[in-house]
Design a protein around this nucleic acid. Structure first.
Lengths: 204, 204
DNA sequence: GCATTTATTAGACATTTGTCTAGAATGATA
DNA sequence: TATCATTCTAGACAAATGTCTAATAAATGC
């Protein structure tokens, strides 16, 4: 990675002050986490792009693990804010809203693929993870019995589709022979496929 | 990872002889590649589970990069053998046959997510990668014009579904609230969803 | 049996990693 | 101004990594 990165607000002047340092580190970590996965995050590299001395990580987060958790929590709270905000304004909330927060979902996929389920499942609210909450909402809304295996398979399929899309969009478009000029159109059509998956939802 | 692994045929007696060493290293690497991604592969660890001195890697493969390429090539050739063998016995070949070689597709996903497209796209035959070949077959079989964006979107969606499934099956089942006893049934239903994606295919 | 090639081993080497610390700089408070 | 807590810096440290090599062991060809 080039030392002269495109992250961090200024790059020339180092970041100062407790909150600013915390924020810069968390944001830089979140980016690296979604980009390359937890094990590939280097605390020294993260500190460099955040414009901060690497010793600060131990000071503010206790170590790499604490920094990763803080970054994941940061991404999850952003996503949760988007999700609730979307459901407030009248629009029907869909199964998972992966197209919205690709960084969050990419980070989840990275953690899962590295086997770090603790990190991937950290985004809980009242004991329930974010995707699990979407499932529960959808099932009550559609009045599905809890043991309907057909529905569970449908949900699992659409979850796999959306996670796969979030994590591998570029590659999927590549093997589908979609060039740059067609990307937007194809992406929109895939969104439609996902939206229509369960048919029209009844109003709450 | 525990040093006393479950890999390698014997574990007690070290592997000897050029071909045997090569094979043991490639197989151990393929496993680690699918499990944790290229950057997480340690040549020393791989040599240990293969029952081989780590110096052999430089001797037989020139270094880590060569070993990774050999492992990817190994997985791709297995998959290609399965694919052609399947299309011979009369059954209709489907878009991608991801459920068949999860190790291969997991490895592909790992490479893509780390940004190592060279490694992910190495599985070429006559200049065309494996997934790209599936696309071409399907399009000629269904007589789809090359510029049909709706079809490309359908193909991209099913590719994302299958890749996402291969890479994240455990996690998807987890968030879908599928417990151990339901796994097999749900998995079968998802296979059906994929098989019926493009409707019945005309005979070749 | 001897010579030559191949296979194998153990280790050196530089680099990178995460952790932790002693001390300097900074800022607030009294 | 003097005191104190916070913030920040530079670096030490052990562990792990990929690369490469000199030396030994084994096998092969004559």
């Amino acid at each position: 990675m080039v030392p002269n990165a495109k992250n961090s607000k200024c790059d020339s002047r180092p970041v100062r002050g407790g909150d600013a340092v915390r924020r810069a580190l968390v944001e830089a970590t979140a980016g690296a986490l979604a980009e390359a996965g937890p094990s590939a995050v280097s605390v020294r590299e993260v500190a460099r792009v955040a414009g901060v001395n690497h010793g600060q990580i131990h000071h503010y987060f206790g170590g790499k693990r604490g920094l990763l958790k803080a970054a994941m929590h940061h991404l999850a709270s952003i996503h949760l804010a988007h999700a609730t905000e979307n459901s407030v304004d009248g629009s029907i909330p869909r199964a998972l809203q992966i197209a919205e927060d690709p960084q969050y979902w990419r980070a989840i996929c990275q953690c899962v693929m590295e086997g770090d389920l603790e990190l991937a499942g950290l985004e809980v609210e009242e004991g329930i993870s974010v995707p699990r909450r979407a499932l529960a909402t959808l099932m009550t809304r559609l009045e599905i019995p809890e043991t309907d295996l057909d529905f569970k398979a449908q949900f699992a399929a659409v979850a796999a589709l959306q996670l796969g899309w979030a994590a591998l969009e570029d590659f999927v478009l590549l093997i589908s022979d979609v060039d740059e000029s067609e990307r937007e159109a194809v992406r929109d059509r895939v969104k439609v496929i996902i939206s229509n998956w369960f048919g029209p939802l009844p109003a709450p």
